[in-house]
Structures are given as C-alpha cells and as structure tokens.
Simulated scan of single mutants.
Amino acid sequence: MIHMATASDSVALGQLIRAERKRQQLTQEQLADVAGVGIRFVRELESGKASCRVGLALTVLQTLGLIVSITSRGASS
C-alpha cells in the first residue's frame, strides 16, 4: 500500500521523517548509522531546521524507503 503525504516546509518534512523512523522502530542513532550521516544531522532534520544539506536529507529519505516527488503548485491532477 502506498501512502502519500505532503511536506511544504522543513518542519513538515522533519515530522514525516520522524514518523517513518518510529514506524520502523529505529532510534535516531540507528538511522544515522544506517544512512551514514551524523546523529546531529538526523536530530536537526527531524526538528525541521532549515538546512542546505539536501543531499544528506535525500540519503535519509532513501534509507527509510521514502520517495520524493516534486509537483508544481500549478499542476492539475
């Protein structure tokens, strides 16, 4: 089953990441280790801190099995 969620800012993205990490029963430390990023980065990402490290954020999303889809605000369904 595919679940779709929308994140329009860094706080919403962090909440989605935290929810998926917890659903997978991973600690922040475990996620950081598996994704190859620092624990501080995971904490800041989940808290919604604006970051220019998009590549690392995408690595964390990929590690959790999440897919990012970009849609134009003007796109019709």
Rank of each mutant, 00 (worst) to 15 (best):
A19V: 07
E20R: 14
E20F: 05
R21T: 10
R21I: 11
R21D: 00
K22F: 03
K22D: 09
K22G: 00
K22Y: 08
R23F: 02
Q24D: 01
Q25H: 13
L26F: 10
L26I: 07
L26Y: 11
L26W: 14
T27W: 10
T27S: 15
Q28K: 14
Q28E: 10
Q28Y: 04
E29D: 11
E29C: 00
E29F: 07
Q30W: 03
Q30Y: 01
L31Y: 06
L31V: 11
A32T: 07
A32C: 02
A32N: 00
A32M: 03
A32I: 05
D33F: 05
D33A: 15
D33V: 00
D33E: 15
D33S: 12
V34C: 01
A35T: 10
A35H: 05
G36Q: 09
V37L: 04
G38Y: 04
G38R: 06
G38P: 02
I39V: 12
I39E: 01
I39Y: 06
I39W: 02
F41H: 03
F41Y: 14
V42F: 08
V42H: 03
V42Y: 02
R43M: 11
R43C: 09
E44A: 12
E44M: 10
E44L: 13
E44K: 07
E44T: 12
L45G: 01
L45A: 06
L45C: 04
E46K: 07
S47R: 15
S47Q: 14
G48E: 02
G48M: 06
K49G: 02
A50T: 13
A50H: 11
A50W: 02
A50M: 06
S51Q: 00
S51F: 01
C52I: 11
C52Q: 10
C52F: 09
C52W: 04
R53W: 04
R53L: 05
R53N: 12
R53T: 05
V54L: 13
V54E: 03
G55W: 05
G55F: 01
L56H: 05
A57S: 15
A57M: 13
L58R: 12
T59S: 13
T59L: 07
V60H: 00
V60G: 04
V60D: 07
L61G: 04
Q62E: 14
Q62W: 00
Q62C: 08
T63M: 04
T63N: 05
L64E: 03
G65F: 04
G65A: 06
G65D: 05
G65S: 03
L66I: 15
L66Y: 05
I67W: 02
I67S: 11
V68F: 10
V68D: 00
V68Y: 03
S69C: 04
S69W: 04
S69G: 01
I70E: 02
T71K: 14
T71I: 12
S72G: 11
S72Q: 12
R73Q: 13
R73P: 09
R73H: 11
R73K: 15
R73W: 10
G74N: 10
G74I: 09
A75K: 14
A75R: 15
A75Q: 14
A75S: 12
S76D: 13
